[in-house]
Design a protein around this nucleic acid. Structure first.
Lengths: 188, 188
DNA sequence: GTGATTATTTATCATATGATAAATTTTATC
DNA sequence: GATAAAATTTATCATATGATAAATAATCAC
């Protein structure tokens, strides 16, 4: 059941057998159907999800507009960092974009385990570090690239995104309206 | 010499006396004058700096344009994450905006210490977590706020920035040209 | 302090993206 | 499979921001 999760973790930082079974203890598999909210706006994030199958997005509303903050595909972790690490309710929601199977990890239990299993904390640190690097790169792209440049580099770096995600979600992810994205796609 | 650093760390995660002295061992104080580069473009980041006094910025060039990625004031840590965590040379530089005193922490030594001093790793994890939260929030602001909104929220959330940083740096930090920033400031 | 350099503002014009509306295509439902 | 609903595209017009240039203000170097 958590085989995929443990396999994926091996590529990040190898865990001892004890840590693997400790981690497995606090995992639970959950399924969501396309369109379903995994966690709602206003909820305080106390779960870290691993995407076993499917795709999810984090989104929120600015005024009445639905804005996608990020997507996560198979073999990625998802959590609303601003809530998980501050303990405050999140203004964001997590939603399944396809029928999705997740492994839910209880974050409080995980954080407690860090005291006894230091390799778990090491692994988690490495996950956060690489998430952090990703967001730094994303800032760079939003800071001074044009909408067209951002679209093209998404096309190049993550062609899967284009195949599996509705364009309206991709548009707000890129920081533009759906109509603008459509226009950019029509160019050439 | 590293008193300020240790004091600051207390507010993040308390370290044992041994960890404090281990950390102190791998710290070195360095001074830079206004305008001086602390680390150059093309260099691989192997140092984590703590700003004891002064301000620094991380910047890079897009085409020929100087773009400020971030500022760090007193009691903050600075490193070019995309290089530090990947081992690749950085396309970015770190520069002193004022005469600045830094504590330089050797990152390789620090990472080795994580094996013997788990509270050091814990502390470091918490620093990365909060940097990560900051970047996630910044993405949100760049994704769909107007230049004016971004300027006003900087004014509100970090009025010091406006006082100590030249506007040309603030402009690119906000993702706009200096001329646009000047126009926005002139409104009202 | 004086002149030179650098930073900031102001002005004008150009352009990318937004807003709105409508047409078309795709997907979902019964 | 027909109909309705949702997603995407196309078109038009409005506007925020960019590009460039020039004027002013602030800072630096001697």
């Amino acid at each position: 059941m958590v085989k995929e999760l443990l396999e994926h973790i091996k590529t990040i930082y190898p865990l001892s057998a004890e840590s693997q079974s400790a981690l497995s203890e606090i995992c639970k598999e959950i399924k969501f159907t396309k369109g379903e909210n995994i966690q709602d706006i206003g909820h305080t994030c106390k779960t870290i999800y691993f995407v076993k199958k499917g795709v999810v997005r984090i989104y929120y509303f600015k005024d009445a507009t639905d804005i996608t903050e990020s997507f996560e595909f198979e073999n990625s972790f998802v959590a609303r960092a601003e809530s998980l690490f501050t303990g405050k309710p999140s203004r964001k929601a997590i939603q399944a974009i396809e029928d999705t199977t997740l492994i839910a990890i209880d974050s409080n239990k995980l954080f407690k385990f860090f005291n006894s299993y230091s390799d778990l904390e090491r692994m988690f640190r490495k996950i956060i570090e690489s998430s952090y690097v990703n967001t730094v790169n994303r800032i760079e792209s939003l800071q001074f690239n044009t909408a067209e440049e951002r679209y093209k580099s998404l096309l190049k770096d993550a062609p899967d995104t284009l195949k599996r995600i509705p364009l309206k979600y991709i548009a707000s992810y890129l920081g533009i309206t759906q109509v603008s994205l459509s226009r950019i796609r029509g160019l050439k």
